[in-house]
Computed example of a mutant assay.
Amino acid sequence: MSAPATPALRLLLVVAVALVDRDGRVLVSQRPPGKQLAGLWEFPGGKVEPGERPEATLIRELAEEIAVTVEEPCLAPLTFASHPYDDFHLLMPLYVCRRWSGTPQPLEGQALKWVRPGALRDLAMPPADAPLIPFLVDLLGP
């Protein structure tokens, strides 16, 4: 007798980036009040729209959220997160970017902070983001 099939969770594709400054720090943003997971720190990025490539999503989201311009060749894929939430399954590629133009500004009411990779562990982050930290520490050092 086979086990009953579990209902499939909706797959949500979100893309994120670790912007790395000249001092080897990573930019994180704090989800503003009123949003799901408010108060948690995360890597900038957002939902991939239908027909949109992940790199195009990052270019669009970084301009909309933090007023920086990124060129696609400056986005290097590093790793990804795969995390089941209660009502969807998140798949989130993480890119690294060391070159952009503009100064990051919080355009959507979020707080921004530059953090050393090892110090990311001290921040309250969504469950999908935390497993990405060791990859950044391996790449950039603590």
Score class of each variant (00 low, 15 high):
M1C: 05
S2I: 13
A5M: 06
T6P: 13
P7I: 13
L9S: 07
L9W: 02
L9C: 05
R10H: 13
R10T: 14
L12Q: 06
L13D: 13
L13V: 04
V15Y: 00
V17C: 02
A18V: 04
V20Q: 05
V20N: 09
D21Q: 05
R22D: 14
R22T: 12
G24V: 06
R25C: 08
V26Y: 02
L27T: 08
V28R: 03
Q30P: 05
Q30L: 01
R31V: 04
P32N: 03
P33C: 01
P33R: 03
G34E: 00
A38H: 04
G39Q: 10
L40R: 07
E42W: 00
F43K: 00
F43V: 09
G45N: 08
G46F: 09
K47W: 06
E49T: 00
P50E: 10
P54C: 08
P54Y: 02
T57G: 05
L58A: 02
E64Q: 09
E65S: 06
I66L: 09
I66M: 10
I66H: 03
A67C: 12
A67D: 15
T69D: 10
E71N: 06
E72A: 14
C74K: 08
A76H: 12
P77T: 01
F80A: 10
D87K: 12
M92H: 07
M92F: 01
P93V: 07
P93K: 00
Y95N: 03
V96G: 01
W100T: 01
W100E: 02
G102L: 02
P104Q: 11
Q105A: 08
P106R: 01
L107H: 12
L107F: 14
E108W: 07
E108L: 14
K113G: 15
K113S: 15
W114C: 13
V115D: 12
R116M: 12
G118I: 06
D122P: 04
P126M: 10
D129K: 08
P131S: 04
L132W: 09
P134S: 05
L136R: 03
V137I: 14
D138S: 13
L140K: 13
L140C: 14
G141R: 11
